[in-house]
Design a binder for these strands. Structure first.
Length: 222
DNA sequence: CTACCGATTGACT
DNA sequence: GTCAATCGGTAGA
């Protein structure tokens, strides 16, 4: 059993020269209490961490998408609150977990309660406790383990149970800074969002350029 | 209750 | 590159 709460975890990240020590203190609520396109961009290079009775696991966020409270018909909040999207209208810094095509996807709620915006985490680079994550997706290669929003949820065991959970405590699911990772604007790619059937024109997908663990096609990742 | 849809994935050409 | 399986959420009878 791995103790919860801030602690150092060790991992090797492909873009860094060597094994690095990562502190896992959760980002504060103020980080999330901003427009989703800002949060989506700044979540790149952060660590997504998941704690269960089987131990700690996680990885580096390499791809995100913003869903806007207004002017964005692709956003689940666009038609107002329902039972499904209730978490999106709650406090920032909580999880919004929804089902699509019989799978789960994970978002962080952004902006103040009542607004209805979020950031979808689309891909992580697996770093911590690969064995555990691979056990949850036994047919997957390491590259495909968490490349895609539903794959990532399967690898981290994120389901409906975590809908609405607070991301600012190191209990079940949270996001932390990864020391040593520098976000440069040159390293960030921006494209239209993947899979949406409306608002094709909005460039609200953010990704770490050149990262091996991105979902989508080569063309979108240039 | 039924019917339809989808912010996906994995198998296949 | 194409395409169908999958099932929870939602709307409507």
């Amino acid at each position: 059993m791995v103790a919860s709460g801030p602690q150092a975890v060790v991992a090797t990240y492909s873009a860094l020269p060597a094994t690095i020590s990562l502190m896992n203190a959760p980002l504060r609520r103020s980080f999330y209490d901003r427009p989703p396109d800002i949060v989506a961009r700044e979540l790149l290079g952060k660590l997504l961490l998941r704690e269960t009775s089987l131990g700690l696991c996680g990885g580096l966020i390499v791809e995100t998408e913003a869903y806007l409270a207004s002017g964005d018909p692709a956003c689940h909040a666009a038609k107002g609150p329902t039972k499904r999207n209730a978490a999106m209208f709650g406090e920032p810094g909580h999880a919004y977990v929804y089902s699509i095509h019989a799978k789960w996807c994970f978002n962080t709620v952004t902006e103040r309660a009542g607004v209805g915006s979020a950031v979808l985490i689309r891909a992580i680079e697996p770093l911590i406790n690969l064995e555990l994550m691979l056990a949850r997706r036994p047919l997957s290669t390491t590259r495909d383990l968490a490349r895609g929003p539903a794959r990532l949820c399967a690898a981290l065991d994120i389901t409906r149970d975590l809908d609405g959970v607070d991301l600012t405590t190191a209990e079940h699911l949270w996001i932390a800074k990864s020391p040593g990772f520098k976000l440069s604007s040159a390293g960030i790619g921006i494209s239209t969002r993947i899979g949406v059937t409306s608002a094709h024109d909005l460039s609200l997908r953010f990704y770490l350029r050149g990262n091996t663990f991105l979902s989508g096609t080569k063309k979108l990742n240039r």
